[in-house]
């Protein structure tokens, strides 16, 4: 019974609906390099995802193309600049810009990161780690509450890829995120590449770790590629580079998650060394094939 993923053969996206959830299919990050190809061919794909900040401009080609692409596909808006894990509350001016963008494009999903990127007025353009303890938990909950209140919708929060841990942390990442979800009602953007990267970087078993996350709240999955480096002691240090195909170890984790949760909207992220569109499309199709093959098992499990 591998009928579960509709519309795979159809040209164009599954839905042009302006409401509802993302379809449980493969999606791709929308890259300006691919604007024209996409509009020319309208490939069968579950959804596209954009980085919110790239579209916080007044007009011009970005909005021109996104408007057209949005009319054919469901959309996920993924923020990279809210600094939800920051010491300061989310910037109200930035929330206003986000609200306007969400109003304009009516995305089926909005997500952000469990990380900080601004401090003292400076923006660092990186997803920086926060310690996990009661103090930061309260603060991040307040920030998520404020974002959800201002935007008038539920958001998804993404588990981070990290390279260091904090001595002051008293909670595990899974516990921390579980509490965030419980207290704020937000959902989980399960980044399986981040799970793999962080587990290798911190000497954990990814299969065990992933079970500590609030998986039932998963609204979307991210898959991506990483780069390999070494730390000072010669231990592997994986970098969340988004510059390579999804690794086999990450596909393996993905299969486990699909068996457990069933099909979910699954994004292939690629931000570096961006290949031709068909290469990315093939990865999204692979994710759909995994879901078609394994998804049913979850429903009955």
């Amino acid at each position: 019974m591998t009928k579960d993923i509709p519309c795979m053969q159809r040209s164009g996206g599954a839905s042009v609906s302006r409401v509802g959830a993302l379809p449980a299919r493969g999606g791709l990050g929308l890259k300006p390099e691919h604007f024209q190809t996409i509009l020319e061919h309208l490939p069968a794909l579950g959804f596209f995802e954009i980085h919110a900040e790239n579209y916080m401009v007044a007009g011009g080609p970005f909005h021109h193309y996104l408007t057209r692409i949005r009319s054919h596909y469901p959309l996920s808006i993924h923020g990279v600049g809210l600094s939800i894990g920051g010491a300061a509350p989310p910037d109200e001016a930035h929330l206003d810009r986000l609200a306007a963008l969400l109003e304009r494009y009516a995305p089926q999903s909005f997500s952000e990161h469990l990380a900080w990127s601004s401090h003292g007025g400076a923006f660092f353009n990186d997803l920086l780690p926060a310690p996990y303890h009661a103090g930061t938990l309260n603060r991040v909950c307040e920030h998520i509450d404020r974002v959800q209140e201002r935007l008038g919708r539920r958001m998804l929060i993404e588990n981070p890829a990290t390279y260091v841990e904090f001595v002051e942390s008293t909670l595990g990442e899974g516990e921390f995120i579980t509490e965030l979800v419980r207290r704020t009602g937000c959902g989980l953007l399960l980044d399986i590449n981040n799970v793999h990267v962080s587990c290798v970087n911190h000497g954990r078993d990814p299969h065990a770790f992933i079970q500590t996350l609030p998986l039932a709240a998963t609204g979307q999955i991210h898959l991506a590629g990483f780069a390999e480096d070494l730390d000072a002691d010669g231990h592997p240090l994986l970098i969340d580079s988004h510059g390579a195909p999804v690794a086999e170890a990450v596909w393996e984790l993905f299969r486990t998650v699909v068996q457990q949760l069933g099909p979910l909207p699954t994004l292939i992220e690629r931000d570096n060394d961006i290949p031709a569109f068909p290469v990315l499309l093939a990865e999204a199709r692979r994710a759909e094939a995994v879901m078609a093959a394994l998804g049913d098992m979850a429903v009955t499990a």
Partner: peptide, 18 residues
């Protein structure tokens, strides 16, 4: 020659330790 159409915000990490 159109401005290189690149979105400058993303959520990748580059460069590693070196």
């Amino acid at each position: 020659y159109g401005v290189a159409m690149k979105g400058k915000n993303d959520c990748k990490a580059g460069a590693g330790t070196t």
